[in-house]
């Protein structure tokens, strides 16, 4: 019954909102009619399952710097495309083409990531039904 008491404690204590952990299809969160290109400095990298996140510091037209989250595929999918965590370091300037989140948050679905050296990687989750998805599965 230790499990139960831990579970109850957790359940009672959980009230606030927190960052999302999402594993989902493209359409669940992103709008295919709102393509966007972000260019910015990599400020944080979450090389995580079930999706990875690249955070970019993007300078707007007004000179203001905002942080954007770019959601990509899971580490296994990225590494099968020849993309390793070590290929990136904080401060690298990346160009990310993707689609805006439906929620209006500073979050995009990263379909194509262009590294500092010009190398391009498909960043999306295979089989998620998003634009440019040609894979049959994950």
């Amino acid at each position: 019954m230790k499990m139960t008491s831990i579970a109850l404690t957790l359940a009672i204590a959980l009230t606030g909102a927190a960052p999302a952990l999402a594993h989902h299809s493209f359409a669940a969160q992103y709008d295919a009619n709102k393509p966007v290109r972000l260019v910015g400095k990599l400020s944080k990298l979450e090389w995580t399952n079930p999706h990875s996140y690249f955070y970019l510091e993007v300078t707007g037209k007004d000179g203001k710097v905002t942080t954007w989250g770019c959601e990509g595929a899971n580490p296994g999918a990225l590494s099968r495309r020849g993309f390793k965590k070590g290929d990136l370091k904080l401060g690298d300037v990346l160009t990310v083409d993707g689609y805006l989140a439906k929620s209006g948050a500073r979050l995009i679905d990263a379909r194509r990531i262009t590294l500092t050296g010009g190398r391009t990687i498909f960043g999306g989750s295979a089989g998620d039904g998003g634009p440019g998805d040609t894979a049959a599965g994950g």
């Binding site: 019954m1 499990m3 139960t4 579970a7 109850l8 957790l10 359940a11 959980l14 009230t15 606030g16 909102a17 927190a18 960052p19 999302a20 952990l21 399952n49």
Partner: peptide
Amino acid sequence: VASAEKLLHWVFGAKVALLALAGL
């Protein structure tokens, strides 16, 4: 454990609460 800090939201909280009831 792998996702702990990203699970502090009501959906996961509700799941844990129902698990406790399902044990009871």
